[in-house]
């Protein structure tokens, strides 16, 4: 959660495609004044983002065409960084792992909805439980690494529990076998994500009118109708929004992988973002890293096309 704090999160990108252009272009004095007002409101955010967000991104789009190591003068190389990526076996591997990581999305979303439904009621102690479920979200990456590495250790509690229950005969190597490492890291992503998406779905569930809920609670038959005709449609935009973010988060996954396996063992958890980091700060190959980043962005767009489509069809009203 370093600088990229914002990257784990996002609003709805869909608005780009849906926002309507101003209809009339006749200029009036009041109109101009409204425009000025609008920009005045936007000014602090735009200035800060221009300096600290847009400028680095623009620079990134420039250096992907260069050989840039920070220490030596930049050298223009055209599309060489891209052709290199297409031939780079490790990059292919990292793409594959990042795509595999999308498996997290449906599981995580379903679990989060279930948990949100579970805590969306007033019971004694419910605040405590909501806090407990949010703990993974606020846990620093460092603490996550320490505790999960212990959990996954070959002598750790997970193996202990599973062997005691007789579910496995000998310890499993969660983070140290090629086969299990990626799924094991995915588990951490899900563990961290549930609380976060729970909050989003909770917000969605809270927008279900209380009267309808009360009615449904009394009359068993109408409960299903409320779920079907009120809850699900109300939740739909939230699901799409969360899915979009989740897909993006999966394709950009960095923190968990970096601190738990560093991309290993034997590159079995190398994801695009981790590979990009190594190219940038390990090999000082910032030009190539920028090119990898651009390919990553393109993939995020491609994988979210179905989500955008559904937004355009269904969630339109809400977004």
């Amino acid at each position: 959660m370093a600088l990229g704090a914002a990257s784990a999160t996002s609003g709805s990108a869909s608005r780009v495609t849906l926002a309507r252009p101003p209809r009339k272009r006749r200029l009036s004095h009041t109109q101009v004044r409204r425009w000025v007002t609008a920009y005045a409101f936007l000014l602090p955010a735009l200035v800060l983002m221009a300096v600290f967000t847009f400028y680095p991104i623009i620079m990134g789009m420039v250096i992907m065409f260069y050989d840039y190591t920070v220490f030596e003068p930049m050298e223009f190389v055209g599309f060489a960084n891209f052709s290199r990526a297409f031939a780079d076996q490790d990059f292919h591997k990292s793409v594959l792992h990042s795509v595999e990581y999308i498996v997290v999305v449906p599981v995580l979303q379903i679990l989060s909805i279930l948990v949100a439904v579970l805590v969306n009621r007033s019971l004694p102690g419910i605040t405590f439980f909501r806090t407990a479920y949010y703990i993974p979200v606020v846990t620093s990456t460092v603490a996550v690494a320490i505790s999960w590495k212990w959990l996954y250790n070959s002598n750790g509690i997970l193996n202990y529990a599973l062997t005691s229950l007789g579910l496995i005969e000998r310890p499993l190597y969660w983070l140290t076998s090629k086969e299990l490492a990626l799924p094991s890291v995915m588990m951490v992503t899900m563990w961290k994500g549930i609380g976060w998406y729970m909050v989003i779905y909770l917000a969605g569930l809270q927008s279900v009118p209380k009267e309808l809920e009360e009615a449904a609670a009394i009359d068993g038959a109408s409960r299903w109708r409320v779920i079907r005709h009120v809850t699900i449609p109300l939740l739909k935009p939230y699901v799409l929004f969360a899915t979009f973010m989740s897909v993006m988060g999966a394709l950009q996954v960095f923190d968990e992988v970096f601190v738990m396996t560093g991309g290993g063992p034997l590159k079995s958890t190398l994801t695009m973002a981790v590979y990009q980091y190594y190219k940038a700060f390990g090999a000082f190959d910032f030009g190539y890293a920028a090119a990898i980043g651009m390919l990553m962005a393109l993939m995020i767009l491609v994988f979210n096309i179905p989500v955008f489509r559904m937004l355009a069809k269904g969630g339109l009203k809400y977004y």
Partner: peptide
């Protein structure tokens, strides 16, 4: 521009 910041990389950021 805002959406692009969520997707676009800046490894040298």
């Amino acid at each position: 521009a805002l959406v692009s910041t969520l997707v676009l990389p800046n490894p040298a950021g």
